[in-house]
């Protein structure tokens, strides 16, 4: 799907970083266009739905361990997280019931993006055959 894997042509670290910063970019760099676009659409949609549901965007250094875990999850979204912080998307506290769903959507989007970026790394290094 989406072309042949070309281990060695793109550095695994570059594929990992690209995939982390922009969802699906690691796979696109490796020529896996369909996979990359599907990953991008899925992760972007999850993140956007989370924002639309007024989910919470976690910040670092709140002192609460659960907030730190949430921050780690959010950070997995790469540039999306930076964009959300810069443009003041989302909320700092959960204000309505469905906002808790939104918070989870945002955190899971970040975690899924990390999984996708690691997959791009595995493809680039040849650990995953195709």
């Amino acid at each position: 799907m989406g072309g042949d894997a070309l281990p060695g042509r793109v550095s695994p670290v570059v594929a990992l970083l690209a995939g982390w910063l922009i969802p699906g970019a690691g796979h696109v760099l490796l020529g896996k266009w369909v996979r990359g676009l599907l990953l991008m659409v899925s992760i972007l949609c999850m993140f956007a739905i989370g924002i639309a549901l007024q989910g919470k965007i976690y910040s670092p250094n709140t002192g609460d361990p659960l907030d730190m875990l949430g921050f780690a999850g959010d950070l997995g979204s790469g540039l999306l997280y930076g964009l959300a912080r810069m443009l003041d998307w989302g909320h700092t506290t959960v204000q309505i019931a469905v906002a808790d769903y939104g918070t989870k959507f945002i955190v899971v989007a970040g975690l899924l993006n990390v999984v996708a970026a690691v997959d791009a790394h595995s493809l680039a290094s040849g650990r995953k055959p195709s």
Partner: peptide, 13 residues
């Protein structure tokens, strides 16, 4: 929605 998007990522990866 959660299941759909998560399943796509799990399937591919």
């Amino acid at each position: 929605l959660f299941s759909l998007f998560t399943s796509v990522v799990f399937g591919i990866t």
